[in-house]
Amino acid sequence: MDEAIGFNQMSWGFSTPYFLGMVGMTGAPANAGQYSNAQFDDVANRAVQETDDEKANKLWQEANQILADDAAFAPIINDSSPYLMAPYVEGFIAPNQMWFDLRQVSINNEKLEEVR
């Protein structure tokens, strides 16, 4: 990280391994801390291009280890989006990112009548 930056904070979910490339690859748009490591870039590039899921996952694990060894990021888990639902709302699944699928959400009318 450039000495003038000093500190950088960002919020993002880690539901895809591509997250590592988006925030860790040299010159990546979301690499706000300007982290740069040629070994990481090489492994991440190979992971992006790998068509075999098992091999790609192993490469992403290797890339993740490089970031951890470099202490490039300090992951902090903070669920600042708690959900409160009425007991008659059914089918809502709290996503690991802010992508809500409300197709399965419904109102259980029997439970609704109980609370009225």
Rank of each mutant, 00 (worst) to 15 (best):
E90L: 03
F92E: 01
D70E: 08
A38L: 11
L112A: 08
M25L: 06
D53F: 08
A74N: 13
Q97Y: 10
Q104V: 05
M98T: 10
Q65P: 07
W60H: 06
S15N: 15
Y18D: 14
A38S: 14
D42S: 14
D79E: 13
G24D: 01
Y35R: 08
F73W: 13
Q104D: 12
D42K: 13
S106M: 04
V115D: 09
Y88T: 02
F14L: 11
M25I: 06
A28M: 03
D2K: 10
P17L: 07
F73D: 04
V23C: 05
A68Q: 11
T16F: 13
A4T: 15
G21S: 03
A94R: 14
W12Y: 15
Y18H: 12
M10Q: 15
L84V: 10
A32Y: 13
N8G: 13
D69S: 14
G33Y: 02
V48D: 03
A56I: 02
Y35P: 05
M25S: 04
E3I: 12
Q65Y: 09
N64K: 15
Q65L: 13
I66F: 05
N96H: 15
A32C: 06
G91Y: 03
I93T: 11
F7N: 12
A44M: 01
D41N: 04
F73T: 07
R103V: 07
G24N: 03
Q97I: 09
A63Y: 07
S80P: 04
A30Q: 08
V105I: 07
A4K: 15
R103K: 15
N108F: 01
I107C: 04
G33E: 01
D42T: 11
V105E: 04
I93G: 03
F100V: 12
G13P: 09
M1E: 11
F92R: 03
A32K: 14
D2P: 04
M25Y: 01
F19D: 05
Q9S: 09
S81V: 11
W12N: 12
L84D: 08
W60E: 02
E62T: 10
G24C: 06
K111Q: 08
M85G: 05
P75D: 06
F92G: 02
F14V: 11
K58Q: 10
S11P: 05
G24F: 02
R116P: 03
A4D: 15
D101L: 04
E113Q: 13
E54K: 02
V48H: 04
A4W: 12
